[in-house]
Amino acid sequence: MRSIRSTRQRSRGSTELNIAPLIDMVFILLIFFLVTTSFVKESGVEVKRPAAQTAEEQKTTLIIGVTSANRVYMEGKPIDVRAVQAHVERFALKNPGANVVIAADKESRSGTVIQVLDACRLAGVRDVAVAASRPG
């Protein structure tokens, strides 16, 4: 009878769970996901993009939004159309070879979109595109 009790007492005391390797693994996964995550800059406004048969997905660096009320947004902040060139010049200096995408609402005036496009080109950025979505 003693041998059974002593075996039970010994087995109760030795049940430990070592979670140090588990914590190490979680931190390694966290670092992996942080390093491999790509962050996309958005214009900061919701726009309804017009459909285009030739729409292509591109990696973008800077997105400028034009709403249906013809307001211009950059990185979530409203800016004046006349200030677009200065903002894009500063951005292009920090990011050589940068590209710009203009996400214009389909209800926005083409004149405002052309002003933004012209300001981007005057700022020295040659790779400027207008965002569209594929139909369907």
Rank of each mutant, 00 (worst) to 15 (best):
T36D: 08
D105A: 02
Q58G: 01
R90N: 13
H87L: 04
L62A: 07
Q9Y: 07
A20P: 00
V40Y: 11
M74Y: 10
N99Y: 01
T7F: 07
A92P: 01
F39T: 15
A86D: 11
Y73C: 00
E107R: 15
G97L: 06
V113C: 03
V130N: 03
A92I: 01
Q115N: 14
T112P: 01
R10D: 08
E46T: 13
V84G: 05
I64Y: 03
L93K: 15
C120H: 03
P50Q: 10
F33I: 06
T54P: 01
M74D: 10
V35T: 13
V66M: 01
I31M: 12
E107C: 03
S6G: 06
G124M: 05
K59M: 11
S110A: 13
Q85P: 00
V81E: 13
T15V: 13
G136T: 09
H87M: 12
V81N: 07
L17Q: 05
F33M: 12
I4H: 09
V66D: 01
A132K: 09
I64P: 01
T67H: 06
V72D: 08
V26T: 06
F27M: 12
V130Q: 08
A123Y: 00
A104F: 05
E56Y: 01
R2E: 15
C120R: 02
T54G: 08
L117K: 06
V47Q: 07
V26F: 08
S110F: 05
T67L: 06
G13M: 10
E46Q: 14
I63R: 06
L30S: 09
S133I: 11
G124Y: 03
H87P: 01
S38H: 15
N99M: 03
T37P: 02
A132P: 00
S6M: 08
I28D: 05
I23P: 00
V26H: 06
D127S: 11
I31S: 12
V35P: 02
S110I: 06
N18F: 03
P21E: 13
I19R: 13
S108N: 00
